[in-house]
């Protein structure tokens, strides 16, 4: 199930944020600390997560301390879903 979340997130990031639908994003690749996702797209990502998985990411959580990789974000979503 985590892999579903991960691939769904990866697809969204590649297509919507990076605009490169074919680009592969490793589940352990840093997203925020590397600057791949800037603060604007981070808000977009949180809106996507909210809509897609029904999980709320607080404004104070949109930083690399809460999650920096797809795996960590997927884990967070799963925890909050259950």
């Amino acid at each position: 199930m985590t892999t579903d979340i991960t691939s769904s997130l990866a697809q969204y990031i590649a297509a919507q944020i990076l605009q490169q639908p074919k680009r592969k994003i490793a589940s352990d690749a840093p997203l925020i600390s590397s600057g791949l996702i800037d603060s604007f797209h981070l808000v977009d990502l949180s809106l996507f997560v909210e809509k897609q998985f029904g999980v709320l990411l607080d404004d104070s959580e949109l930083n690399k301390d809460t999650f920096d990789t797809l795996a960590q974000l997927a884990q967070l979503i799963r925890e909050r879903q259950s």
Binding site: S39, L42, D59, L62
Partner: peptide, 10 residues
């Protein structure tokens, strides 16, 4: 970011 940028952007 938490108290201005994120809420405004959202």
């Amino acid at each position: 970011r938490t108290y201005f940028f994120n809420p405004v952007t959202r």
